[in-house]
Write a protein that binds this DNA or RNA. Structure first.
Lengths: 197, 197
DNA sequence: GAAGCGCCTTAACAAATGATAAGCTGCGCT
DNA sequence: AGCGCAGCTTATCATTTGTTAAGGCGCTTC
């Protein structure tokens, strides 16, 4: 049985943005205009690696997997982004490079998408947009900082345990082999250290 | 023989900021007022791990080493910051937590320091400060993104080679065992893979 | 129910890395 | 010169992780 009253993704977006800055109605309308509503079925490729289009994403339902793709064709999971979370190829945009990762939907996913160039152009229009941009960058930084520290300080086993405690619900939605890649090990190795409790 | 005309660190700071946004004279003076000039001798501890004071740093001469300190007392190098580079415990400030890393001068270092809380308070005073804050966060994000990708996709050997090609001069200023820690391996292991060319 | 597929586990072996200890080298100091 | 120390290397062995291959389990599809 699905939710009989599906919440408006734009409502969720508005709430998320308001947590960063008080967004006056006129400016909110500009943002709302920029974001397009999109859907992806499970296993659908949302962003193709090497894409020239940079999009700011906001997931309202479902789960996205972000992955690097090396020359050998091997994937390494970079992040998982679920409900009410943002994602953006900020580094690529700043450096004016094509997006170097791909995005795949792990479940049927509903999300909002706005060209990052368009969003960044707003910075010059009104200070509140600049603030949103700062908060976006800071949020991404905090996320990456936590991950970086975890990778440098912890062993694979510790990283796994940490992930489970911090994302108990999310862990059940992610296939083991994708989680392993995210933790920086192989599926076999993860299975092994799980057995060792 | 030292430089007979030592450049003004504030001049370097101004140039660095101007690269991010056109900073009008009055606002520049506010920033300049906030930054204090400091020096550290080689091996001096600039920031003690767990410190409650969050500082925005700008190195004008020398080299700083940023390191995590785990419960067992073991250090892991998080970053090296040299001339004309910024560093800031943005994640800690955003989450309102004590700084979870330490900073040590690897050489005699001259730097400018401003309380991060003071800097962030400026965001509400003028849009140009907000822009500087955004650019600061974006820069830190780009730096961390590159590092993260390198850690996930590359082997220790590849990371070492990459570091050498991208920072040939810096590599010679960093002791091997500190570089090893930065690369996520031990000093012994680095020595080993160097021999294997 | 048989076949196919996705996901997970297990086993056996190879490779990479850690831990510990010992020794080498350059350099500053007295 | 002799000493002490910091930084680097080397050797040895233990541990972790990767690789490859095989099989199990549940689910869907025909």
């Amino acid at each position: 049985m699905t939710n009989p009253l599906p919440s408006d993704p734009y409502l969720a977006l508005s709430a998320a943005l308001q947590r960063w800055a008080e967004l006056p109605q006129p400016q909110w309308l500009v943002v709302r205009e920029g974001f397009r509503r999109r859907k992806a079925v499970a296993r659908e490729l949302v962003v193709f690696p090497g894409s020239q289009s940079h999009d700011l994403l906001f997931v309202s339902r479902g789960l996205l997997r972000f992955f690097y793709l090396d020359e050998g064709g091997r994937e390494t999971n970079k992040a998982f982004v679920a409900e009410n979370e943002f994602a953006a190829p900020l580094a690529s945009a700043v450096l004016q490079q094509p997006v170097y990762y791909g995005v795949e939907a792990l479940e049927e996913t509903e999300y909002l998408s706005m060209p990052l160039g368009e969003f960044r152009a707003l910075y010059h229009r009104h200070p509140v947009f600049e603030r949103l941009g700062r908060c976006l960058a800071e949020m991404l930084l905090v996320r990456k900082e936590r991950r970086m520290r975890s990778m440098l300080e912890q062993t694979a086993t510790e990283r796994y345990r940490t992930f489970l405690t911090e994302n108990p619900l999310l862990a059940e939605r992610i296939p083991q082999y994708h989680l392993a890649s995210y933790l920086g090990i192989t599926e076999v190795s993860l299975s092994r250290l799980k057995k060792a409790l």
